[in-house]
């Protein structure tokens, strides 16, 4: 079976045939052992073993804990990748994005206004959580199209704070 695995910005083609696993054309021997009653999984690749954990899964989106870090990974087979590409889902996301609260907290300050043009990494909003002030930054360049919260407002994790549109 052929899979397209996206880790961060990189998509890797992985062909699995039993323990023979080909990664971007390179052959390896790999296997996993799922630990019963636990999210832990033993992974052995070319004789090197490590342990990761599955934190969650929704369809093709997996959240793994690898080397102490949380990794969001997408695993698609050819069919689901084909369907997604046909639907153009990949394109719709680019250029239009919402800033969501990465954790519950309190909005302290809004550092931009509707119509502002922002560069990647520009501070957008200050959020207080766990007694710490955190500056949320733009993931990419864009124009602020909507500000959905006000200073002093408590927000839930994942709540939309701002919307960014494509730069004109």
């Amino acid at each position: 079976m052929k899979y397209f695995v996206t880790v961060g910005e990189r998509t890797v083609e992985v062909v699995v045939d039993g323990e023979a696993v080909t990664v971007d054309g390179r052959r390896t021997v790999a296997r996993i052992d799922v630990v019963a009653g636990s999210p832990e999984v033993r992974v052995e690749i070319d004789g090197f073993a490590s342990t990761l954990a599955v934190a969650g899964r929704q369809g093709t989106a997996w959240q793994l804990v690898v080397a102490g870090g949380v990794r969001d990974v997408t695993v698609e087979d050819e069919r689901s990748r084909h369907i997604r590409l046909l639907a153009g889902a990949g394109k719709a996301v680019a250029g239009h994005a919402a800033l969501k609260a990465p954790m519950p907290g309190l909005v302290l300050r809004i550092l931009v206004a509707v119509g502002d043009s922002v560069a990647a990494g520009a501070p957008l909003l200050a959020l207080e959580a766990m007694k710490m002030e955190n500056e949320l930054k733009a993931a990419g360049p864009g124009v602020v199209t909507a500000v959905l919260v006000t200073p002093g407002q408590a927000v839930a994790k994942g709540q939309k704070l701002l919307e960014l549109g494509p730069q004109t």
């Binding site: 880790v7 992985v14 699995v16 992974v43 997996w62 080397a67 990974v73």
Partner: peptide, 24 residues
């Protein structure tokens, strides 16, 4: 900062593909 070299990403990709295969 979060960072990964290519080898680490490939290992994650292999493990994730094997998990998906195991489920299938």
């Amino acid at each position: 900062a979060a960072s990964d070299d290519d080898a680490a990403i490939e290992r994650i990709a292999i493990a994730a593909a094997l998990l998906a295969e195991d489920q299938r």
